[in-house]
Design a protein around this nucleic acid. Sequence first.
DNA 1: ATAGTAAGTTCCATTTTGGAACTAGTCAAC
DNA 2: GTTGACTAGTTCCAAAATGGAACTTACTAT
Lengths: 174, 174
Amino acid sequence: MRWDEIDNLPCSIARSLSVVGDRWTLLVLRESFLGVRRFEEFQQRLGMARHRLSDRLNRLVEHEVLRKVPYQDKPPRHEYRLTEKGLDLYPVILGLVRWGDRWMDQGRGPPVVYRHQTCGQMTRPGQNCSHCGAELKAREVTPMAGPGLDRHPALKQTLARAPGRAGGAKKAAS
Amino acid sequence: MRWDEIDNLPCSIARSLSVVGDRWTLLVLRESFLGVRRFEEFQQRLGMARHRLSDRLNRLVEHEVLRKVPYQDKPPRHEYRLTEKGLDLYPVILGLVRWGDRWMDQGRGPPVVYRHQTCGQMTRPGQNCSHCGAELKAREVTPMAGPGLDRHPALKQTLARAPGRAGGAKKAAS
DNA sequence: ATAGTAAGTTCCATTTTGGAACTAGTCAAC
DNA sequence: GTTGACTAGTTCCAAAATGGAACTTACTAT
């Protein structure tokens, strides 16, 4: 069976994987959830081949997980932003984080920890806040450096601009 | 960046994907969660190339997501069963199901629906039961044919032996 | 005119995957 | 006592996906 056939299986897992089930797509989306929006920035942070990134972004736009939003006219330039469909992948991302934190942390503790802005407390990654029980929404969660992030200044920088922070992806006040 | 380097990134998503982030692995695990344990049965249900399946199963065993359990001596034969680490991937699987159900159902409704045995009610796929709120464990959830499964007898058969059913993967009574 | 920035595309080598056929150990039937 | 079936693979080769580096296009700034 070839990859371009699996989206027709009567299986929600196969259909989901037909969009996000390759080496890079979920890492691209991780960056999106951290506030990254531009081609150059995705490429620099992920270190992936440029044409591969181009493919992945285009496919995500095709499937309406991201949408292209122009931010200047001359020359035409645009950003890639999460749609509602894309934002709805947050539990999948946090599910992978939770599993990786538990089983793949190399004994150092989680590289990233999360605070639920709505209730103000730290939460385990997952579908619901482990403190208040409310559903975790990407815009209401602040990722912060955890114990497993020793000596990785580059990633700390990524975190510094994540949602929920002053001076983050959006201007703090307009 | 090559694939065999990503498991060293200080990122739980990348590390999780280094185990389950390829075309087939999560589909293999889906079958595991449905009670499939033997090479031939994985191969027949998934229709994937045999040596690819062999690779994937070996990698999952290496990472202790599955373990090999002998079931006969002459000739030596064994089954692949989920470990605790593997069972802990259930929320990731159900996260993909939930997203696929919502966004990729082709207008037909979910192919599979889930009943939480512990409370006896139907639940949305996810980390917790949408009825009673308890964490969903693979062994306490029964997948059943949903509206999106029209005319797919093969998959109905897969479901018929899933956990929580009499006459399923284990003998009903010993 | 030269350099810089952003978002790609092109070319080519390497890696991964897919398909079909073949191997190995054992039992059961003819 | 040879043939066929069953289970779990492996081998060979072609096709597809990926990675790396250089090049392109459309501007702006110096």
